[in-house]
Design a protein around this nucleic acid. Structure first.
Lengths: 140, 140
DNA sequence: TCTAAAACTGTAATAATTACAAAAATACAA
DNA sequence: TTGTATTTTTGTAATTATTACAGTTTTAGA
């Protein structure tokens, strides 16, 4: 995983000039790990530097995406979320509280998705249901 | 799989009144199996009955969705696609030609996505890459 | 046939995203 | 350091998918 203290080095290694905004946005993604939408990122960072533009967040996410620094999650229509963890893992969205959880996947799972003669570049695994916390609070 | 000749019976069994438009839209989904967007459905059926409204397609898809007659695929931002096959299977999108392919998944795969103490209602498995046809035409 | 409910239509409103042009910041050569 | 070209950022306008809504048509059944 990328070291939060060396974001500039990491961005350079990915062919991206490490501007102030870009570093702050990636730092946010790495620290919070909350699979935010553009609006969530924008609202969260605006407090710290009010000069930030929503367009910059859009531009930056598009740039990060094209350089493989983030993956885009479209678990649900009308909200694209971003994840700075680009390793193989799944996502679970709780339909009650809306939280998105990560969960691990063995490499092995790829054999179950083997498409003969197709070149597979990206794997997305989304589950929906009710998370443990929401299940427990319902039982009360 | 649902019999294309008994769509009215099937819709009734799902608690949906089988109106003319609803039957034609479901028939389209079952026949074409092309994971269409609302616009694709609209454009395809408009020729047959020009009185069709885009809003009707939206309304119908929302109705089908809430009754479990279709599933919504959000493989990519900015396009919700619909699939009348609600059984467990995966989807592959070719980034070159844009086609969406179905592929089978063993029940077994669910054990690889077991989230302890979570209630899982829906499984979505999306792959992206290059399909066989596009790979072959590139080699030329 | 008449009436109430359901379905359909078309336009207007909303929301996420993109386009674009101007302004600011940065890099770097002279 | 200064000047200039390039990159980045900003803010507004445009675009696109979707939803809201109100009026019209169709349907079911008394």
């Amino acid at each position: 995983m990328v070291d939060v203290n060396n974001i500039d080095v990491y961005l350079k290694s990915q062919g991206i000039r490490p501007s102030f905004h870009r570093m702050k946005i990636l730092e946010y993604l790495l620290r919070e790990r909350n699979h935010p939408t553009v609006d969530t990122i924008f609202d969260s960072l605006r407090g710290m530097f009010p000069t930030l533009s929503r367009t910059t967040v859009y531009n930056t996410m598009k740039l990060f995406l094209s350089h493989g620094v983030v993956q885009a999650l479209t678990i649900e229509e009308k909200e694209v979320r971003y994840d700075a963890d680009t390793s193989l893992h799944g996502h679970f969205k709780c339909v009650v509280c809306g939280a998105v959880y990560d969960f691990g996947l063995e490499e092995e799972i790829k054999t179950f998705m083997n498409l003969k003669d197709f070149q597979i570049n990206e794997h997305y695994i989304f589950l929906k249901g009710v998370c443990k916390t929401c299940l427990e609070s319902r039982e009360v």
